[in-house]
Amino acid sequence: MKHNFVKALLSLFVILSLLFGIASCVPADESGKTGGYESIELKLDGVDPITVPGFSGTEFYILNNNQPFFEDDEIVTESYEKYYPLDALGRCTLTIACIGKDLMPTEDRGDIASVKPSGWVQAKYDTAVISGGYLYNRSHLIGFQLTGENDNEENLITGTRFMNEAMIPFENQIADYIKETDNHVMYRVTPIFVGNDLVAAGVVMEAYSVEDKGDGISFNVFLYNNQPGITIDYLTGKSWLSGEAPDNSESDSSDENDINNGNNAEGQTYILNTSSKLIHESTCGNAAKISDKNREEYTGDINSLIEDGYKEAGCCLGK
């Protein structure tokens, strides 16, 4: 019985891999596990393999002359959203949507801390290395501001702060275009995993505005799930400062461990200046100077604030 279940899971994994794309790569080091791939080969459904150069510090790489891969019969004018099942390794596979105003959220964002995406081994570094300190975010494949998905495990991957921040401006552009025009945007986000890696090497983001045939929005990009200054073991999610020896201790990605180590990014408390739209650390001296009228305490994911237009204060969050 158990054997059959495992067999079924493996079969599902193979089918999903063929359907939604897998990736192979040339590792930059001998272990083949530490990321920093020299190149990544994308194998997307219905598309010839594409070789993406390794991370060089830029946020994204343009694919297919920036033309999205949508087939004509995939481009529709009625809103829908679809999140494909996790694969056998518990990894997200694919999300696709035709986004209209009717799908956009009307309520505040909810808590997503209950979801532990594949490769979730949170780590905190000096804010001089990573703005805000935390390496990982629970990155929505389709951003909350577009379809209002909160804690959907089929839509959340372990994403670096660097990648998450690179996704948001694309999402902003789509969201504001839809709000302004009431048009629809076809949107597909595909996480790219190399081999059995639990952390994605990156995501492919495709967008195409439907009613004006791409005049308003049209792009096809690969975003790197890297973090400058940090080396990531994409197989497990463990990380360390680049140039230093890796931490070979047993990884523990439990939420309890995160919290005990003060590493729960979603549980961190910040002080907001609702007038200047700045985020301060709760211990920041400048936060104490904010008038009661403009002061608000917030506990949760800092990226939610950034997506809502807030910025990190340079005095404490290093930006």
């Binding site: 275009y177 302004e180 025009t181 049209s218 792009f219």
Partner: peptide, 11 residues
């Protein structure tokens, strides 16, 4: 601009 398109618009 991005990719030859305006970043946003507002009536």
């Amino acid at each position: 601009l991005l990719f030859g398109k305006r970043q946003s618009r507002d009536r």
